[in-house]
Amino acid sequence: MTGKTIVITSGKGGVGKTTATANIGTALAMRGNKVVVVDTDIGLRNLDVIMGLENRIVYDVVNVIEGVCKLSQAMISDKHDYELYLIPAAQTRDKNAIEPEQLREMCAELEKDFDYVLIDCPAGIEQGFKNATAAAQEAIIVTTPEVSAIRDADRIIGLLESAGMHNPKLIINRIAPEMVKRGDMMDQKDVESLLAVEVIGLVPADEQTVVAANRGVPVVHNAKSPAGSAFMRIAARVDGEDIPLMDLEPKNSLLSRVKGMVGMNGRAYSHA
């Protein structure tokens, strides 16, 4: 098997890299792929809690690279019955504990056994970013429709470009359709006109994503949720399926507004 390594990155923190990694990884596994997700945010690990695997950690990525344990010993199997594994970050070390070539070697090893190796990249453009991007063949950039996140995404696109990684794909996360509709939030076209990259996914702001994080069960397990189905579609596109992007028209009927007012609205995106 020759899988590929994809880095999930953003520049700005807090836009949903870890959530995207957990969900795309889970969804790819649900589709029948053999997947391993690697947390490279050394010192600030979080992919384990998003996936609900925090109590199972024995070894981490730094242990593997330093030869303290075997690669297979650091891989935590997901609770579900498909092929999904997590290699957690070290919590008590820093980004300088590993070198880009070491992570590349580790991922090359993983590519022999897995269809997809997903790397959760730390925020910023320093050592952690360099490590994570050097190990990957492809990149997915996560942004939100906000000036700061888009500006940072543009920096990342430039840095990836100069490192020889062309054609990164973009996920626009936390879109609030109601705000887009009234012109208070940039939409896909606006973002595309600013950043010349291909959009691979649109993810609506969804309360269920928060609920999923609380429970440690990625939101793709809730296929009916708007964010869950958005991430399923992204995984399908990553997996080579040619499907259209999600339609994010707000469900803005009078009935849903009235329901919203009386607190009956089960809709995910709140009236922000």
Partner: peptide
């Protein structure tokens, strides 16, 4: 619309 302001500002930045 505030998104147009955002776009204009971003273009320059």
């Amino acid at each position: 619309m505030s998104k147009d302001t955002a776009k204009q500002r971003l273009k320059l930045v």
